Amino acid sequence: MYTYKVVTIKSSWKGEPKEDEEQVINEHAAQGWRLHSIIPFSSTTGGTTDLKLIFEKEAKL
């Protein structure tokens, strides 16, 4: 069984992430989380507004 965590990285008005994605991933990996997937959310104009990073790790029973 796994547990999941969703982290949202917002983008600036230029479409650039406000946080370093690699740093966020490495910080969670150090806590035992594994990156499961990344989902980009787009605005109506086609630019990416947010990134949803989904992490997983085995649940402690």
Score class of each variant (00 low, 15 high):
Met1Asn: 09
Met1Leu: 13
Met1Lys: 12
Met1Cys: 06
Met1Asp: 08
Tyr2Ala: 09
Tyr2Arg: 11
Thr3Ala: 01
Tyr4Val: 05
Tyr4Trp: 05
Lys5Arg: 12
Lys5Glu: 08
Val6Ala: 12
Val6Asp: 15
Val6Lys: 11
Val7Pro: 15
Val7Glu: 15
Val7His: 13
Thr8Tyr: 03
Thr8Gln: 10
Thr8Ser: 03
Ile9Gly: 03
Lys10Asn: 11
Ser11Arg: 10
Ser11Trp: 00
Ser11Gln: 07
Ser11Ala: 15
Ser12Asp: 07
Ser12Gln: 00
Ser12Met: 06
Trp13Glu: 12
Trp13Arg: 09
Lys14Leu: 04
Lys14Tyr: 13
Gly15Phe: 09
Glu16Leu: 13
Glu16Gly: 10
Pro17Ala: 02
Pro17Ile: 05
Lys18His: 02
Lys18Met: 14
Lys18Gln: 13
Asp20Glu: 01
Asp20Gly: 02
Asp20Lys: 11
Glu21Ala: 01
Glu21Cys: 00
Glu21Val: 06
Gln23Ser: 06
Gln23Met: 04
Gln23Lys: 15
Gln23Arg: 15
Gln23Leu: 00
Gln23Trp: 00
Gln23Cys: 00
Val24Ile: 14
Asn26Tyr: 01
Asn26Met: 13
Glu27Thr: 08
Glu27Val: 04
Glu27Tyr: 06
His28Ala: 12
His28Tyr: 12
Ala29Trp: 14
Ala30Ser: 11
Ala30Leu: 12
Gln31Met: 02
Gln31His: 02
Gln31Val: 00
Gln31Trp: 01
Gln31Asn: 06
Gln31Pro: 01
Gly32Leu: 04
Gly32Val: 04
Gly32Lys: 03
Gly32Thr: 00
Gly32Asp: 05
Gly32Cys: 02
Trp33Tyr: 02
Trp33Lys: 02
Trp33Arg: 05
Trp33Asn: 04
Leu35Met: 10
Leu35Lys: 05
Leu35Gly: 14
His36Leu: 08
His36Ser: 03
Ser37Pro: 09
Ile38Asn: 12
Ile39Tyr: 07
Ile39Val: 15
Ile39Gln: 14
Pro40Ala: 01
Pro40Tyr: 06
Phe41Pro: 03
Ser42Asn: 12
Ser43Trp: 00
Ser43Glu: 10
Ser43Met: 07
Thr44Asp: 11
Thr44Arg: 08
Thr44Asn: 11
Thr44Pro: 12
Thr44Ser: 09
Thr45His: 13
Thr45Ala: 13
Thr45Pro: 02
Thr45Glu: 14
Thr45Lys: 08
Gly46His: 01
Thr48Phe: 00
Thr49Gln: 06
Thr49Ser: 11
Asp50Gln: 13
Asp50Gly: 06
Asp50Tyr: 12
Leu51His: 02
Leu51Ala: 05
Leu51Glu: 00
Leu51Cys: 04
Lys52Phe: 11
Lys52Trp: 10
Lys52Leu: 14
Leu53Gly: 05
Leu53Phe: 01
Leu53Met: 03
Phe55Glu: 13
Phe55Pro: 15
Phe55Trp: 04
Glu56Trp: 07
Lys57Tyr: 01
Lys57Gly: 10
Lys57Ala: 09
Ala59Val: 05
Ala59Asn: 03
Lys60Val: 05
Lys60Trp: 05
Lys60Asp: 10
Leu61Ser: 12
Leu61Gln: 11
Leu61Cys: 06
Leu61Met: 05
